[in-house]
Simulated assay, not measured.
Amino acid sequence: MNGLNHFGKVLAIAPHPDDEVLGCGGTLVRLVAEGHPVTVAVATTGRPPHFAEDQVQRVAGEMRRAHAVLGVRDTRLIGLPAAAMDTLPASETNAAFGQLIDEVAPDTLLLPFIGDIHLDHQLTFLAAMVASRPRHDKAPSQILCYETLSETNWYAPPTTPAFVPNVFIDIEATLDRKLEAFSAFESQVRPFPEERSVEAIKALARLRGATVHLRAAEAFMTIRQILR
């Protein structure tokens, strides 16, 4: 395959603001630069009393700045309750994701990994998979899962699903933009050696790249590909 041409129209779904930057920010910069329509949808929004209103507004502003760095112009907010998706009926969650995927009609879907420790990540994956069942010609033809530092590797593999990547996307030219976008989330950046640090993100990109003889990469697991 020639680069990312086969990705077509792309929808990246993040359980929370910043997950899409951590998991596939460098890839999103590449996709935008190569002319692909790119939409980022954030599944949840913080709600009182668990999240103070000023905190929610601060993160929303950080997200807008981060997406500007990535070059993403189409951001959708689904508005489900953060850290409380499990309190909703599955039918309600599935319907929200179904409406999103019907509206965007992506060729490629980028999702969090089912084995992430945060339940919001697991439920986002499951609802998106329900919504993208291949029942018609407009169903996504490619579904990939990205890894999220401090979520993907903190569960309990092999007791729980393990992230074993089989797709590596070269982000040598876009790694700095990914790091800049994450730095826009000032409320989320932590000092090294915490995983949500600029140093850890850069180290993971170098490691994933070296795995396949690249200087920097983002790693994904293929869930489904339909080749027409």
Score class of each variant (00 low, 15 high):
residue 139 A to K: 05
residue 59 V to I: 15
residue 30 R to V: 07
residue 70 L to R: 08
residue 73 R to N: 14
residue 163 F to T: 01
residue 41 A to I: 04
residue 104 V to L: 04
residue 209 G to P: 01
residue 142 Q to S: 10
residue 105 A to Y: 02
residue 172 E to M: 11
residue 150 S to P: 12
residue 17 P to C: 09
residue 12 A to H: 00
residue 201 I to C: 03
residue 101 I to A: 01
residue 149 L to M: 02
residue 172 E to A: 14
residue 18 D to L: 04
residue 217 A to F: 08
residue 193 P to R: 11
residue 62 E to R: 11
residue 215 R to V: 13
residue 194 E to A: 10
residue 155 Y to H: 12
residue 185 F to S: 07
residue 10 V to W: 04
residue 118 H to I: 12
residue 221 M to P: 03
residue 192 F to N: 04
residue 69 V to P: 10
residue 45 T to M: 05
residue 178 K to G: 01
residue 179 L to H: 08
residue 115 G to P: 10
residue 168 F to I: 00
residue 72 V to G: 09
residue 137 D to L: 13
residue 61 G to K: 13
residue 61 G to T: 12
residue 36 H to V: 01
residue 180 E to M: 08
residue 207 L to S: 14
residue 72 V to M: 10
residue 206 R to K: 06
residue 4 L to S: 08
residue 190 R to Q: 15
residue 118 H to G: 06
residue 64 R to P: 03
residue 104 V to A: 07
residue 48 P to C: 07
residue 25 G to T: 02
residue 57 Q to R: 15
residue 67 H to D: 13
residue 21 V to M: 00
residue 135 R to H: 09
residue 224 R to C: 02
residue 166 N to Y: 07
residue 41 A to V: 01
residue 161 P to Q: 02
residue 151 E to W: 10
residue 84 A to V: 10
residue 164 V to L: 12
residue 123 L to Q: 12
residue 71 G to I: 03
residue 184 A to W: 07
residue 147 E to I: 05
residue 101 I to W: 01
residue 130 V to Q: 11
residue 77 L to D: 12
residue 163 F to R: 02
residue 218 E to I: 02
residue 79 G to N: 03
residue 112 P to C: 04
residue 110 L to Q: 03
residue 167 V to I: 04
residue 12 A to C: 14
residue 65 R to I: 15
residue 14 A to D: 07
residue 71 G to C: 11
residue 154 W to A: 14
residue 74 D to P: 12
residue 98 G to L: 10
residue 68 A to C: 15
residue 157 P to T: 08
residue 119 L to K: 14
residue 207 L to R: 14
residue 105 A to P: 00
residue 174 T to P: 00
residue 58 R to D: 10
residue 85 M to Y: 03
residue 150 S to L: 07
residue 35 G to V: 09
residue 77 L to Q: 15
residue 217 A to K: 10
residue 178 K to I: 06
residue 61 G to V: 09
residue 212 V to L: 08
residue 153 N to E: 15
residue 23 G to Q: 08
residue 13 I to V: 13
residue 54 D to Y: 11
residue 98 G to K: 14
residue 94 N to Y: 15
residue 135 R to V: 13
residue 112 P to G: 07
residue 200 A to M: 14
residue 140 P to A: 03
residue 125 F to E: 01
residue 19 D to F: 04
residue 99 Q to R: 15
residue 50 H to V: 12
residue 33 A to M: 09
residue 188 Q to N: 01
residue 15 P to N: 04
residue 49 P to Q: 05
residue 192 F to P: 05
residue 74 D to I: 10
residue 52 A to S: 15
residue 18 D to C: 00
residue 214 L to D: 05
residue 169 I to T: 00
residue 48 P to D: 11
residue 219 A to C: 03
